[in-house]
């Protein structure tokens, strides 16, 4: 089986029904996506497949068509994305466990909707649980990233 992750191609001898999350974590050692629930209910495992956010814990690897991007592949050469920079500026993370998934969801949101409303943010981000309750700062960070992205472009 062939899989492209963060621009790198991998050949894998694995069961087709293994969820992408465990292929990434246990077979490829890509630890950015986290395991939180295994049933698509928390968003900790969110990755992008051709830019679309997917819950990798509930996605059998045989159904992956397209290039996978994890948080590990977001920032090339240590240069952070506008979303990551906004997360730092707003000091969002507490325990941090959910934040890889939050950042991937926010990245996908801003790619498709550069100026999201509060309702857009709530809708796009409500699949990502945060037990530390960082939501107020997530909202601020998404807005900050939106405005820096629009200033850059």
């Amino acid at each position: 089986m062939e899989l492209t992750v963060n621009g790198e191609r991998h050949s894998l001898d694995i069961e087709g029904d293994m969820p992408l999350l465990w292929v990434l974590r246990d077979e490829l050692g890509i630890m950015g996506p986290k395991f939180g629930c295994g049933i698509g209910a928390c968003g900790a495992c969110t990755v992008l497949i051709d830019g679309v956010p997917e819950r990798s814990c509930a996605l059998p690897v045989q159904y992956v068509e397209g290039a996978v991007t994890t948080i590990d592949g977001l920032s090339g050469d240590g240069v952070l994305t506008a979303v990551q920079e906004a997360w730092i500026a707003e000091q969002v993370a507490q325990c941090g466990y959910c934040q890889a998934g939050q950042i991937m969801s926010a990245t996908a949101l801003l790619a498709s909707n550069p100026a999201p409303s509060d309702a857009d943010i709530d809708e796009a981000m409500s699949g990502n649980l945060c037990r530390c309750g960082t939501y107020p700062r997530i909202r601020a960070a998404v807005k900050r990233a939106a405005s820096t992205q629009s200033a850059r472009s």
């Binding site: 630890m31 948080i71 730092i88 969002v92 466990y97």
Partner: peptide
């Protein structure tokens, strides 16, 4: 710990 946590660094027990 902020930079580690926005870059998905392997800092947790599961990692």
């Amino acid at each position: 710990d902020m930079r580690a946590k926005v870059t998905g660094a392997p800092i947790f027990g599961v990692d």
